[in-house]
Design a protein around this nucleic acid. Structure first.
Lengths: 124, 124
DNA sequence: CTGGTTCATCGTTTTCTTACGATGACATGG
DNA sequence: CCATGTCATCGTAAGAAAACGATGAACCAG
C-alpha cells in the first residue's frame, strides 16, 4: 500500500573480475552455498522482483508474496548472507537490491561445470 | 578398487534449444528446483567428478566421496530427479553421466535474472 | 544353481528448514 | 515525548533433508 520512491541506494556496479577459482573444493562449496540460497521458490521470486524493479525496493516484497512478513524477512536474510542481495537502511525502511556480481559469479561457476566437460563443443 | 572401463553410454548430445520460458512462475519453480538439487556440497562434487571424467562412471563416485554408499546413492537420485544427470544400467553396474542440457538450462535461467536487471550493460 | 558384486531402497535418527505469531528495535511524524 | 509504521529477531511447531546400516533386487562368474 505504498510504492515508495525507489531511492538511489545500492550503488557501485563494481565490475571488477572475480579472482576466485572456478574449480576445486572452495569453488564447490561456494557453488553449493549459492545454489542452496537460490533453492527455494520464494527466494527466486524475491530475486525476480528485485531484478524487475530496475532499482531497489523495501518491504513491498512482502506485499507481492503470499507469506508473512517475518518469513519474507527470513528469506531476505538468507539471500543477503549468500551475497545475492544487499540491504541498505533508509530511515524506517530497508532498501534491498540485487548484487549482480554474485549472480554473475554463480553463472560462471555453473558454466565451469560445463567447460570441463567433453561437450564443450556445443557449450556456448 | 575397480576403475572400470567407462562405457560408451550417455549418448545423444541433444543440442536442441530449450523451448521453455525464462521468466514467470514456472521458470521460478524450475530454477528453484535445479538450485536446490545443486545446493549440497556432495552433489556439486558428484557433478564435478562426472564433468572431469570425460565419459561416465559408475559407483567409483562412492570411492571418491567420504560418504556411505547409500548416501551417495541418495544424492545421485536427487540429481537424477532434477535432470542434472542420467543413469544407465550396464550389467551389474550403473553408469552415470552429466546431462549438459540441464546445466545449460540452469545457466540460462540464472542469466535471466541478470538480463532483466538494469546492470545488463556490464552483464556479459 | 550358488556366491559375489553392485547398486537401490527401507527404516531410523538427527539435524536443518520453513513458516508463523509475538515481541523488540528504530526512525519519523505529530 | 508519544504513537505509528517498518523491519528484524525470537521462540516454536511441523515438515524436509541428510546420514547411516541393513536389506533386497539384479546381474555375472563359476
Amino acid at each position: 500500500m505504498n510504492q515508495k520512491n525507489a531511492q538511489a541506494c545500492c550503488p557501485a556496479p563494481n565490475s571488477e573480475p572475480d579472482l576466485r577459482p572456478i574449480e576445486g573444493p572452495e569453488a564447490d562449496d561456494e557453488l553449493a552455498a549459492l545454489s542452496k540460497a537460490l533453492g527455494h521458490p520464494a527466494r527466486v521470486q524475491i530475486l525476480r522482483i528485485l531484478a524487475r524493479k530496475t532499482a531497489c525496493i523495501c518491504g513491498d516484497i512482502v506485499d507481492e508474496l503470499p507469506l508473512a512478513q517475518s518469513t519474507v524477512s527470513q528469506h531476505l536474510k538468507v539471500l543477503k548472507e549468500a551475497g545475492l542481495i544487499r540491504g541498505e537502511v533508509d530511515g524506517p525502511r530497508v532498501c534491498y537490491c540485487l548484487e549482480p556480481r554474485t549472480l554473475r559469479r554463480l553463472k560462471v561457476l555453473i558454466a565451469g561445470l560445463l567447460t570441463s566437460h567433453r561437450t564443450s563443443t556445443i557449450n556456448r
